[in-house]
Every structure is written in C-alpha cells, then in structure tokens.
C-alpha cells in the first residue's frame, strides 16, 4: 500500500534544506521503508499498552543542589559565531 508522505513538509519540520532532487530520492526511499514498517499494523495490538521504556522504573530525581556550571570561555570557544559574552545568530524570522 503506498504511503502518503508530504516530503517537503517533513523536511521543513526537520529543518533540512534539501534540493528537489534529494527530496524526491528520500521520498521514494521512505516509501519503501514505510511499506515495510507498516507491518507493525499487522499484529493484533488491541488493549496492548505501549512500551516507551525497557525498565519498569519511576521517580528518578536529583536533590535540589547547585553544581558547578561550565566556564563561559570554554563554552563559547565552541560557538560557530560569538559576540562577546553571547552566542550570535543571524536574524530570526519567527517569534516564538
């Protein structure tokens, strides 16, 4: 069964600037993979709870204690673009 994929929208959501040729290639590969993946729908799963986590654990917390932060220069040294004490990015289109 062919799978319905709006590959351009998926690429936008994933923030990947892909050429039309690349998009077409991924589209067809995703079709193949998803047709295979659709097998997950073939098993009877009514009333089966999902598993998100392999170990049955709850409430893993840490105490409210302050630990050392990183050295700012060590952090900013990794920045592709730095402006003084800040990371710098080009203008932002959307307001979140």
């Amino acid at each position: 069964m062919p799978v319905d994929i709006d590959i351009a929208k998926v690429a936008r959501l994933a923030r990947l600037a892909l050429s039309p040729e690349k998009l077409a290639e991924y589209d067809s590969q995703l079709q193949d993979i998803l047709e295979h993946a659709e097998r997950v729908g073939a098993l009877p799963t009514e009333g089966v709870p999902p598993t998100s986590h392999p170990l049955p654990m709850t409430n893993a917390f840490r105490p409210d204690e302050v630990k050392a932060s990183l050295d700012r220069d060590e952090v900013l040294e990794q920045a592709p673009e730095r402006a003084g004490e800040y990371f710098r990015v080009p203008r932002i289109l959307g307001e979140s």
């Binding site: 932060s69 952090v75 004490e85 800040y86």
Partner: peptide, 24 residues
C-alpha cells in the same frame, strides 16, 4: 525559584552574567 534548574545543577539566579549559569 528553586536552588538549581529543572534538569541540571546550574543555579537559578536572576541577573547573572550572560552564559555563566550553563552546563552540558
């Protein structure tokens, strides 16, 4: 206004020098 942040041990402090209360 807890002592530390939600998911790490960095302090919750208003008005700290930029990018000083940060960790991995």
């Amino acid at each position: 206004q807890t002592e530390s942040k939600m998911f790490c041990g960095c302090p919750v402090r208003f008005g700290a020098e930029p990018n000083t209360t940060v960790c991995p």
